[in-house]
Amino acid sequence: MSVLNVVDLQHSFAGTPVLKDISFQVQKGEIVGLIGPSGAGKSTLLRALCGLEKPDSGKIILQNQDIASLHERELRKARQGIGLVFQHFNLLETRTVTQNVALPLKIAGWSAQKRQARVAELLDLVGLSEHHSKYPAQLSGGQKQRVGIARALANDPSLLLCDEATSALDPQSTTTVLDLLSDINRTLGLTIILITHEMEVIRRFAQRVLVLEQGTLVHDGGMLDLLTRSHNPPAIQALLNETRPTLPPQLQDTLTQEPRTDWNVVIRVVLVGASAQTAFLSELTKHFSAQAVLVAGGASLCAGIPTVDMILTLNAPLTDKISRYLSEQTQLMEVLGYVPGHH
């Protein structure tokens, strides 16, 4: 069941197109990452999704309603079905945690008594019950963002939009906030769209990634597709490189594309799922009496799936037999070049 259906969205500022024919669907319970370099149109798309910016043309169907064509009054009602988590939290500094979380409920016309019960429930969900009477200034960045999440969830939205929700946080708080969002996604089945410029956040978190470049949607698919594809568009590659292992500088300096005898082959391999949990390196050495040395990368979780993304040097020529073995065992095998061996 699709929660959100964006059809041919177009928007321009002063004649300059910022969104060109954007179409995509989001299914219930999905976590979708929307990434792109700054100026790609991410914020405009986000603002259009929550009805803050009216697009020139196109449809944004959320819960059988076209956000793009609603009038003020209906739009206000529809916005209650969308939760938005901001980069800079945007909490009311003069209000307590409880009052901040209660505000959307007050706007939606809940009675004081019902509000109180709901706020308690939400604060429990984000683990801030004991801080209910504190002011935002007394909280850490991660805690403030959890208040922001509780507030966004107050009206039980069908869609949660996170606008660079972790970009202002330290790595530890980022992890807590992302874990919380994952939990909410699992337990409540909530659909989440995460807008970010950080590939790392998407890699850990999103099941599906949309890449926006200069107002155009250039990729819509799984994160693993991007990792296991040898040729990505340059913009995507640049984003990917931020989160992928790179060749150490001393090897990069001596790297050449010309095969030379007695030089080591430098390869990148990506293993996903079950194959990521095999004794790949020792098998390689055993079968071909080739020494494979790990120079960069390792194992991690990519959208919850075990993934190995690494760069190896092999002290044996890349015979057909080795090549075949590597392509059978891995999801991606790329030759990066050759470096002098240390024999």
Binding site: L52, R76, L92, P104, I107, N155
Partner: peptide, 12 residues
């Protein structure tokens, strides 16, 4: 940002 926050909640 605060103005937008209240607007996104559906506030008039």
């Amino acid at each position: 940002g605060l103005i937008e926050a209240v607007q996104v909640m559906g506030g008039s």
